[in-house]
Design a protein around this nucleic acid. Sequence first.
DNA 1: GATTTTACGTA
DNA 2: CGTACGTAAAATCT
Length: 795
Amino acid sequence: MLVTVKGPPGAKVMIVGEAPGEHEERVGEPFVGRNGDLLSRMLVQSDITRQSCLLTNVVRRRPPGGNIKYYFENAAKTVPNELMKQELGILASDIRRLKPNMIIALGRTALWALTGQTKISECRGYIYNSTLVPGIKVLPTYHPGAINDSWEMLFPAIMDIRKAVANSNTPNILADTRCLRASPSKREFIDYLDYCKTKPIVAVDIETASPGSHIDIFGIGVSADDAMAFTFLRGRKPTQSDVRAELDLWMRIADVMNNVTSVMHNGMYDATVLMHNNGIACRGYTEDTMVMTHCCWPETPRSLAFLSSVCLNVPAWKHLQMDMPAWYNANDVANTFGCYEVMRDEVIEGGHSNTYREEMEQVEITDYLQLRGIKVDKERQQLLIKESKEKAEIAYAELVKAIGKPINLNSPKQVAQLLYGELGLPPQYQRRKSTKDKRTVTTDKKALARLLLATKNPILQLIMDFKKADKLIQFVDIQLSETGRVHTSYNITGATMSRQNTKAVVVDDDDNYQSFGRWSSSKSIILPYGSGNLQNIPGEARKMYIPDGDNTVFVQADYKQAEAVAVSYIINDNNLKRMFQQSYGKSNDYCTELGLDVHKMTACLLFGIPVTEVTKAQRKVGKLVRHANSYSAGPKVIADQLGIKLAEAKRFQENYHNRIPQLKLWYKEVQRELGEGRTLTNLLGRKHKFLKRWGDELFRSAYSFVPQSTVGDMLNKALVRYYKEFNHIAPIALQLHDAMYVVCKNTPEDIRETKYNMYTCMAIPITYKGETFCIDVDFKVGPTWGEMEEQELGD
DNA sequence: GATTTTACGTA
DNA sequence: CGTACGTAAAATCT
């Protein structure tokens, strides 16, 4: 059955999907069924009713199997076949006849049909002139079908529909009346910099060329529609032939960056480059639109293109990056300013001011840590490389001897063929999201361990040995800087480059990221030495990292049982609270003697015995059950890890909940809070709006949010305090989520003083429901990062 | 050549 | 139904 356009003639908004589904075809109406229901809900949230819109699809008939490829000549779906051409003609005549003011294109096919564009994630949220019927506005967004699969697309899609509705009242495609200058003369640029000095705040953005992160374009603007981009390098060639003239420009830029408040989008990168390459300190840089977005909407993408699509009504510009870089940069600047004006209010109204200020205070530390880097002991490095290569080679040689042929053990395909094909071992499968998904085999570590346990086949041990050594090589066989250091970029908001093959990476241009409120660590673009992420170095590889300077040591301070303490107060577990109070500030020996240990306490509850009688094995059970529970893992995890029956694991878990009924009450409370505004607040006032689909996955991440982010925020707060007060005495070297490392002179006096300084900064009292508590701090000291020993505060 | 999948290290 | 992150190599798609 043909499904044709439906809706009132004279409607301002037309909504175009891809093709009718099974249900639509049966009923003969577009957008009925699951996707139609979602569309209706989205429209309601955008203050427009479904009845007031024209609804249709690009094609009127459902393709076989629902696969739109049927209508195309090529797999890339860019060349239409005769059938599609016919359908496009009918769609065009429908549009001309009904004259909608605005077309919402849902999904890739509608986008392509109406504008010729193909990348929905890049085009969505921006208004295009239709190529199918020129003069008609098109605003693309995600198809409800895609949103039903990937729920994170819902928020932008609703924002897009709102924008489309708002723009359906304007007569034509709006002219761009902004004043953006991409090729000013030197004189004009100098005048503009002077003009900037009279303004309370300016927006700034730089473009850089890799390698070396040399600044080729500097852009600055005074409002959302007034910006200028000055080109310093065209390709590799300087635009200023006179070196002194160029230096004069940089001095003037430095003057502005020092004395005028500035806003940037991910200025952590820009500020670090300006400091590293040009010696310019950005003292005025106190506002950042990416940090604002992180505080307000921690689960949305944070690229400027996304933010602008949601906050502003400007034309798309990201596609101009290659061909018109200066024009692109001027747009970046103006749109950063525009987003700043919107987000400034959003920060205040959403109650994020405090969180935002605290995150901005961390900016200077991340700049500092990136440029400082960590020293590597080259001899130790060579030794580790040699050892791990030998281990890998030995394991590989024995394996080849055993199976009689070479194999690439890094190829999951070849390993699977070996294990499940030639050796005929029982296939191990990946866990599926739903039982409807197809089963795929896996050869990962867990699978190998399970197979080894079951079959005792020595080949499995060899594969595991090889993989372990081979993985370690990745961490130790790394390139060092000329001064023998590695560098990392700490990301407060978690901005990162996720595309490994992209050469010219733009660091503030990444989507697809969800932040959990902790810093992340990734490869520094400015100083690309080391394995990149410094937060996942294995213990063995840590042995080559050393403190710089003669006769120095690392001092580590980390929060002790931090999340367990937080949870005990949140759920009001009096037993545990009392235990933490008794052990606070006491030595580890003292705590062990009196059984002041959270896992022993858990074992007490599970086995119903006094704390002094808990055996090591029982403590292990206690630890695991608590652990599994705090991450809402199931009994299967416990059963697997302890090697016990599923029923027994279930009993443990039930027992646990019976003994601590507060936990389930708290779960209920969390769910209630989520239901009210989808927002939770941690113990330091950070709010997190959860956008996931309603269900267990959402609940699980919500349960862990409060304790996890509280501890992360505390550590970062302590880091800021320490940096301000004590960094000149013993400088910070590393941040590891709930631990900080500093470099200290190796004398008992210096170490003791440093420990006290760290403790002073980390002892942050938390008040929750009228009770105040602190989280205790543990210390370790050592000559390398991998060889550190526990010390007491007073030692 | 670009994108997706698989695997694995830390907290 | 453990989760969060970043990186590398292989597999797959165009």
